[in-house]
Design a protein around this nucleic acid. Sequence first.
DNA 1: ATATATAATTATGTATACAAAAAACTCAAA
DNA 2: TTTGAGTTTTTTGTATACATAATTATATAT
Lengths: 223, 223
Amino acid sequence: MKDISLNIDDYLPLRDVVFNTLRNAILTGELQPGERLMEIKLANKLGVSRTPIREAIRKLELEGLVVNTPRKGAEVANISAEDLHDVLEVRRSLEALAIDLACDKITDEMLDELATNIESFKNAMSTKAATEIASTDVGFHDIIYKSTGNKRLIQILNNLREQMYRYRLEYIKDQESWNRLMTEHITIYDAIKRRDKEAATEAILGHIDNQEINIRDKMGFDR
Amino acid sequence: MKDISLNIDDYLPLRDVVFNTLRNAILTGELQPGERLMEIKLANKLGVSRTPIREAIRKLELEGLVVNTPRKGAEVANISAEDLHDVLEVRRSLEALAIDLACDKITDEMLDELATNIESFKNAMSTKAATEIASTDVGFHDIIYKSTGNKRLIQILNNLREQMYRYRLEYIKDQESWNRLMTEHITIYDAIKRRDKEAATEAILGHIDNQEINIRDKMGFDR
DNA sequence: ATATATAATTATGTATACAAAAAACTCAAA
DNA sequence: TTTGAGTTTTTTGTATACATAATTATATAT
């Protein structure tokens, strides 16, 4: 059957196009922490005027991906050891909440999605596709988030995850961690399936903590 | 002793002035949910051009205080029963985290600040100053947030609180609730002082739940 | 060579101009 | 009175202009 959705509203303001572009550039490391975002340069590169660039920067600023100094301009935010700690402390708490809600609310369809995701993960591992692994990993957690049915929770968790996403690219290349990552996902999946909140919470917290250790290592933070 | 801080940098970009102004107008109810934010009208009223207005709106948009429809414009966000539920679900979890951290980290000075705050609350009650009560109530929680030492947590909790702040103005006028509010603050304070995490958590959750009930009543949501 | 003052350049802050979409209005027809 | 086509007005989206602060470059004196 054909999908006749007359996509009347495929219009996106330039500011949002720019916002998505810049955000992606930051998350993939194309724009590095500390790098200046110069309006005219970006405007030329993207072929638009300064106006949408500025509005996009305002949003990135509020999202914490960019820091702005009045009359000096914006630069890509640089996360400190303290920031990382703060983000992870909050994230631990909200991941626990998410798992708790997931155990209550997840549907059979979503459980299937998780199972499928784990299979994709195995495939990506066998083909050693790091990018694929990374996006599958993100997808696994997305399913859990979605199953909570709490839009605000999803939004905040995505934002917190985003804060460290760019620093994760390095460690995800490290094949050593793939097996551990997959084992942890399976443990989490099993616990949710059994609706075993205690086990699920323990598993997710361990999962986050391991990520924290990896990121700290890669970033050269001690402790 | 004279305070010789040559406040060289008391400069604030107009966009931030506008941002604060609009935000305040929304939180105090001067701008009501559903009300349109028309750039030219606001620009004239505030005596600036559209540019800073637009940039401020972009930030309010990301903060969730305003919703924007492309080519139609922005309006003050209207919180639904579902939104309220989502916000409170997350907030409960993070308030519990905050109290937990506070029990570990709060200093004697900050405990004193809490005690002072409770005294201010009593004073405001005796003079029946509703505005005073409201700001003292906000201040009480601010002290607890601050004691966690987690900037990200503080930021998110402030944002969550903000989402319902404007709906709280009504119920704070209701003298009935003042005594309960104060009693709850005292209970929370005592528990933190004893570093009794269990009691403190229970107290803060009850406190949030009571707020939820009040807001639901005032907003005419059932359940 | 270093430091300092000054001029030239560049970037941001703000206002304004113009195009195009959306909303409001007008007025004739049912 | 309501409906609807066509027109006017308003509003947003985007680009650009101009002023001023920040940075860089230049030149001069020590």
